[in-house]
Design a protein around this nucleic acid. Structure first.
Length: 180
DNA sequence: GCAGTGATCATA
DNA sequence: ATGATCACTGCC
Protein backbone atom coordinates (compact mmCIF):
# COMPACT_ATOMS: atom_id res chain seq x y z
CA UNK A 1 0.00 0.00 0.00
CA UNK A 2 1.23 3.40 -0.90
CA UNK A 3 1.79 5.83 1.92
CA UNK A 4 0.42 9.35 1.60
CA UNK A 5 3.07 11.65 0.21
CA UNK A 6 4.64 14.22 2.53
CA UNK A 7 3.87 16.92 0.03
CA UNK A 8 0.22 16.96 1.01
CA UNK A 9 1.17 17.92 4.57
CA UNK A 10 3.44 20.82 3.61
CA UNK A 11 2.07 24.18 4.73
CA UNK A 12 1.91 26.60 1.82
CA UNK A 13 1.11 30.26 1.11
CA UNK A 14 -2.56 29.89 2.04
CA UNK A 15 -1.59 28.94 5.58
CA UNK A 16 0.77 31.87 6.00
CA UNK A 17 -1.34 34.48 4.22
CA UNK A 18 -3.20 35.37 7.40
CA UNK A 19 -2.61 37.62 10.40
CA UNK A 20 0.65 36.86 12.20
CA UNK A 21 -0.98 36.21 15.56
CA UNK A 22 -3.26 33.59 14.05
CA UNK A 23 -0.42 31.90 12.20
CA UNK A 24 1.76 31.99 15.33
CA UNK A 25 -0.94 30.26 17.33
CA UNK A 26 -1.64 27.65 14.68
CA UNK A 27 2.01 26.83 14.11
CA UNK A 28 2.14 25.34 17.61
CA UNK A 29 2.08 21.58 17.29
CA UNK A 30 3.02 21.72 13.62
CA UNK A 31 6.31 20.27 12.41
CA UNK A 32 9.37 22.30 11.54
CA UNK A 33 11.25 20.16 9.04
CA UNK A 34 14.88 20.60 8.06
CA UNK A 35 16.89 18.70 5.51
CA UNK A 36 20.62 18.64 6.09
CA UNK A 37 22.46 16.65 3.51
CA UNK A 38 20.24 13.62 3.03
CA UNK A 39 18.94 13.70 6.55
CA UNK A 40 15.47 14.85 7.51
CA UNK A 41 14.83 16.32 10.94
CA UNK A 42 11.28 17.09 12.05
CA UNK A 43 10.57 18.91 15.32
CA UNK A 44 7.23 19.86 16.82
CA UNK A 45 6.99 23.63 17.22
CA UNK A 46 6.38 24.57 20.84
CA UNK A 47 6.90 28.33 21.04
CA UNK A 48 6.28 31.23 18.65
CA UNK A 49 5.88 35.00 18.64
CA UNK A 50 3.86 37.20 16.32
CA UNK A 51 5.14 40.49 14.86
CA UNK A 52 2.05 42.05 13.48
CA UNK A 53 3.19 44.65 10.97
CA UNK A 54 4.35 48.26 10.55
CA UNK A 55 2.10 49.53 13.37
CA UNK A 56 3.64 47.04 15.84
CA UNK A 57 6.55 48.91 17.46
CA UNK A 58 8.28 45.62 18.28
CA UNK A 59 8.24 44.60 14.62
CA UNK A 60 11.39 45.36 12.63
CA UNK A 61 9.22 46.79 9.88
CA UNK A 62 7.94 49.51 12.23
CA UNK A 63 11.14 51.38 11.40
CA UNK A 64 10.44 51.26 7.72
CA UNK A 65 11.56 49.37 4.68
CA UNK A 66 15.30 48.75 4.83
CA UNK A 67 17.64 46.20 3.28
CA UNK A 68 17.18 43.95 6.27
CA UNK A 69 13.39 44.15 6.45
CA UNK A 70 12.95 43.83 2.70
CA UNK A 71 12.11 40.13 2.85
CA UNK A 72 9.27 40.83 5.27
CA UNK A 73 7.48 42.49 2.36
CA UNK A 74 7.73 39.32 0.31
CA UNK A 75 5.04 36.68 -0.22
CA UNK A 76 3.65 34.71 2.72
CA UNK A 77 5.78 31.72 3.57
CA UNK A 78 9.05 33.53 2.89
CA UNK A 79 11.76 32.84 5.46
CA UNK A 80 13.11 35.86 7.32
CA UNK A 81 16.42 34.89 8.95
CA UNK A 82 18.46 37.60 10.59
CA UNK A 83 21.58 37.94 12.73
CA UNK A 84 21.47 39.60 16.13
CA UNK A 85 23.78 40.37 19.07
CA UNK A 86 26.75 39.49 16.91
CA UNK A 87 26.15 35.81 17.60
CA UNK A 88 22.71 34.51 16.88
CA UNK A 89 20.45 33.71 13.95
CA UNK A 90 16.69 34.10 14.34
CA UNK A 91 14.21 32.13 12.26
CA UNK A 92 10.98 33.80 11.16
CA UNK A 93 8.37 33.11 8.52
CA UNK A 94 6.61 35.96 6.73
CA UNK A 95 2.83 36.15 7.12
CA UNK A 96 -0.05 38.10 5.64
CA UNK A 97 -0.45 39.18 2.03
CA UNK A 98 2.56 40.07 -0.09
CA UNK A 99 3.66 43.65 0.56
CA UNK A 100 2.54 43.54 4.18
CA UNK A 101 5.54 43.19 6.54
CA UNK A 102 4.56 40.78 9.32
CA UNK A 103 6.21 37.62 10.55
CA UNK A 104 6.26 34.85 13.13
CA UNK A 105 9.40 34.08 15.13
CA UNK A 106 9.99 30.40 15.82
CA UNK A 107 11.36 30.33 19.35
CA UNK A 108 11.39 26.64 20.22
CA UNK A 109 10.74 23.21 18.73
CA UNK A 110 11.20 19.65 19.84
CA UNK A 111 13.40 19.53 22.91
CA UNK A 112 15.28 22.65 21.83
CA UNK A 113 14.41 25.74 23.82
CA UNK A 114 15.46 29.21 22.68
CA UNK A 115 15.43 30.76 19.20
CA UNK A 116 19.21 30.95 18.77
CA UNK A 117 19.74 27.42 20.00
CA UNK A 118 17.10 26.23 17.58
CA UNK A 119 18.84 27.79 14.58
CA UNK A 120 22.20 26.50 15.78
CA UNK A 121 20.84 22.97 16.15
CA UNK A 122 19.29 22.99 12.68
CA UNK A 123 22.16 24.78 10.90
CA UNK A 124 19.92 27.69 9.98
CA UNK A 125 21.65 30.89 8.90
CA UNK A 126 21.47 33.78 6.46
CA UNK A 127 21.67 31.44 3.49
CA UNK A 128 17.98 30.74 4.04
CA UNK A 129 16.95 34.38 4.28
CA UNK A 130 14.46 35.24 1.55
CA UNK A 131 13.93 31.62 0.55
CA UNK A 132 10.47 30.08 0.52
CA UNK A 133 9.52 27.59 3.23
CA UNK A 134 9.22 24.51 1.03
CA UNK A 135 11.04 21.19 0.71
CA UNK A 136 13.15 22.52 -2.15
CA UNK A 137 14.69 25.07 0.22
CA UNK A 138 15.57 22.43 2.80
CA UNK A 139 13.36 24.06 5.43
CA UNK A 140 9.59 23.84 5.59
CA UNK A 141 6.55 23.28 7.78
CA UNK A 142 4.18 20.32 7.86
CA UNK A 143 0.75 19.78 9.28
CA UNK A 144 0.34 17.58 12.32
CA UNK A 145 -2.31 16.98 14.97
CA UNK A 146 -3.48 20.25 16.46
CA UNK A 147 -1.93 21.58 19.64
CA UNK A 148 -3.97 20.85 22.75
CA UNK A 149 -3.09 23.41 25.37
CA UNK A 150 -1.75 26.82 24.46
CA UNK A 151 -0.78 29.63 26.77
CA UNK A 152 -0.11 33.22 25.71
CA UNK A 153 2.33 35.67 27.27
CA UNK A 154 4.02 38.94 26.36
CA UNK A 155 6.87 38.65 23.87
CA UNK A 156 10.45 38.28 25.06
CA UNK A 157 13.03 41.06 24.76
CA UNK A 158 10.82 43.76 23.27
CA UNK A 159 10.68 46.30 26.11
CA UNK A 160 11.98 48.90 23.66
CA UNK A 161 8.59 48.79 21.92
CA UNK A 162 6.96 50.65 24.81
CA UNK A 163 4.53 49.51 27.49
CA UNK A 164 1.58 48.96 25.18
CA UNK A 165 3.25 46.78 22.58
CA UNK A 166 5.59 44.95 24.92
CA UNK A 167 2.62 43.92 27.07
CA UNK A 168 0.58 42.46 24.23
CA UNK A 169 0.22 38.71 24.58
CA UNK A 170 1.74 37.75 21.27
CA UNK A 171 3.91 34.88 22.47
CA UNK A 172 2.38 31.44 22.16
CA UNK A 173 3.63 28.44 24.09
CA UNK A 174 2.59 24.83 23.80
CA UNK A 175 2.09 23.50 27.26
CA UNK A 176 3.74 20.24 28.29
CA UNK A 177 1.45 17.42 27.16
CA UNK A 178 2.35 15.16 30.04
CA UNK A 179 1.22 17.43 32.84
CA UNK A 180 -1.60 18.99 30.89
C1' DG B 1 23.38 40.07 37.62
C1' DC B 2 25.91 41.19 32.85
C1' DA B 3 29.64 40.55 28.93
C1' DG B 4 30.29 39.02 24.36
C1' DT B 5 29.80 39.90 19.43
C1' DG B 6 29.11 42.15 14.83
C1' DA B 7 25.33 43.55 11.49
C1' DT B 8 22.34 47.27 10.96
C1' DC B 9 20.72 51.85 10.83
C1' DA B 10 20.66 56.85 11.99
C1' DT B 11 23.41 60.70 12.06
C1' DA B 12 27.21 63.43 10.06
C1' DA C 1 32.99 57.56 9.67
C1' DT C 2 31.02 56.79 14.32
C1' DG C 3 28.01 55.14 17.84
C1' DA C 4 23.71 53.07 19.76
C1' DT C 5 21.07 49.33 19.52
C1' DC C 6 19.82 44.62 19.42
C1' DA C 7 13.14 39.43 18.65
C1' DC C 8 20.03 36.01 22.81
C1' DT C 9 22.88 32.92 25.47
C1' DG C 10 25.90 31.47 28.95
C1' DC C 11 28.53 32.40 32.63
C1' DC C 12 29.04 35.06 37.18
Amino acid sequence: MRRKANASAVLGPAFFKRPADLVARELLGKALVRRIGGKRIALTISETEAYLGPHDFACHAARGRTPRTEVMYGPPGTLYVYFVYGLHWMLNVVTGPEGYPAAVLIRAAGHISGPARLTAALAIDGALNGRTAEPRSGLWFENQAAARKIITTPRIGVAYAGPCWSARKLRFVLKDKRTG
